[in-house]
Design a protein around this nucleic acid. Structure first.
Lengths: 189, 189, 189, 189
DNA sequence: AATGAATGAGAATTCATTCAT
DNA sequence: CATGAATGAATTCTCATTCAT
């Protein structure tokens, strides 16, 4: 494991537990078994470390979500694919996913308008569903937010220790609930 | 406006924008037009200030939510009442509501098990709905989280500037979506 | 003696001995019998402290020099007045004068073009002398620099310990030498 | 250009601009296109590098000055020779000369008493002039300092950008001014 | 009650120096 | 010889908290 990766892993772990401002570089260094000064060989500052790691994961997540819907023809299958992708990502690297969830609020305002975000991917899929009359809604944004919120909250739930183990097993139930939220015509599916 | 209230208002405003650890007592004092030392006449420490203000609002919100469902006989009306209460609280004091939303993660682990929380109120209503066969679910927790998440996200939405103005006007749409999530038998309502 | 003045005195003393970059805030605080943090109540940074103190003295010196020549009618008396003023300032507050001499190189490039400087005052007097044909020179700048250099060096001399005690007693000799440099027509004076 | 020379050139350039304490080994290495570690193959420390380079030039300058006066019989020609030597050295390697001028203050106290310095050479010439009654002065030191100061200041002048190009063209004027300072009997020269 | 100067422990950051490759 | 990652002590600066007025 490279010095850089050791720093990232240790930092994310601490950021999750104590927040970014609440974590000291000394703690990061100790936890990574690395000299404090080494952090600054790879990142210009603690805040930049927090941001870069977030941005990296955030963009990866967005790309993976986008990729996941491309192969699906049926629109409702796209929703299922998105849910699957989200839960997979969470299970694959729960540390990073958790960091993404809890630090969104801090970092989101810094995200460039041109950057692909998970939100944009979901919004686009919903818009297609509306266009094709698969679902009906006169407020895509609100609907999109509620869907995102419902899924995010699953993660938050796990953070609070109210869900244990992997999230993927809950896929069926979550997808079903979202289908209902969308009140799709083909709800029977 | 009392010194205490000036401090609270200024602090909450800054906590929202910069996080608690990211806000200095100097900033709070300046923003409240109060001496730095005065903060310590009313609160033992900065962190305690942050916590007390959160706890206060959090409990008020829980009580108000509980109060709102008591008067409703129809179970589904209770859901509507909860949504109404939530949105009203947000519109009444958006600053405090926003602080509640964004600092939950920081404070939630400190909340006593015996304390009445918004989550518990909602969970209880859902359980009643399941018991009475109004809705069906074999995972109340998951459902409860998704419902809470969907509503919370509306607030987050407004924070990010994707919704403008009061939230109450969206009541109809939000309630409808939640009804669908619950897949209630009386969905036709 | 105010905290601010204690900091300035201690800082200047150390800056002289060790240079600005070579002096630590810890040393300044210890030498001033003040907490390290107190430095930052009065100055935004160590470098700014160094600059502000220099700028302050620098401008005072320039104003005093300018004042000193106003009362003199005879042009050559103005030269004598300038020398007198310079040496007086050095003797009055040798610490500050020494700081001015040794930190010039560091700070001079930061001085605003519109600021009155000792150099400008001397240059102006020399120009008057040339205009009135009291002295002859086709390179005021060069002459001015050489005059300034000759006087400055007296101070440097004292720093190196090659002159002891006050500088004012040497006034006669210094003025005489400068008169000669200027090769004034009334050299016989 | 050898690694050692690349380091010296880069270091001197940065020392001039930022001071010695204000220059980092990382900057020196980058500017010299050399690894940071390589500095330590040629110099035991950064400060030693700064000192050795100064000392080297300083001694060379002193020797050259001494050499320049040997061939001159006429005492006043010696003065002219010194000025010529000084200005030549400055024009030949302005970088090093500038470093010598600006870092004198830092290094001078470290110079051994037995070392030949420019000051000593000039002082000796002046003493001979006094002995031979060519000039009159009852304070050789003061006179010597003023002469050195006047010449040094020419260099400082160029550093500040008030003189452009080579210094040698100003030789005539400078020598003349110094003659006047010395108030030599053969001033008419 | 209110003030705000002073504190000093602790945080982020820098940088000369070392050393394995 | 040269490299540049790694080190960690030292440095600048911050900030919650105290306390005399």
């Amino acid at each position: 494991m490279s010095t850089r990766d050791k720093i990232i892993t240790a930092a994310v772990d601490l950021f999750i537990k104590q927040g970014i401002a609440g974590t000291t570089t000394r703690e990061i260094a100790a936890s990574a078994s690395v000299a404090e000064g080494s952090i600054y060989r790879y990142f210009p500052s603690k805040d930049e470390l927090a941001w870069q790691v977030f941005d990296d994961y955030h963009q990866t997540l967005a790309k993976r979500l986008q990729q996941s819907v491309i192969n699906e023809q049926q629109l409702m299958d796209k929703i299922a694919a998105l849910v699957h992708c989200f839960l997979s990502m969470a299970d694959e690297d729960w540390l990073m996913f958790r960091y993404y969830l809890t630090s969104q609020h801090t970092h989101m305002q810094k995200v460039d308008n041109t950057t692909l975000t998970p939100y944009k991917v979901v919004q686009q899929v919903l818009q297609e569903l509306i266009k094709s009359n698969t679902i009906k809604s006169n407020d895509v944004n609100l609907l999109c937010e509620m869907v995102m919120g419902a899924v995010h909250q699953i993660g938050i739930n796990k953070i609070y220790g109210r869900i244990h183990g992997d999230l993927l097993p809950h896929k069926q139930l979550i997808t079903q609930t979202i289908f209902q939220m969308l009140n799709a015509n083909e709800c029977e599916k």
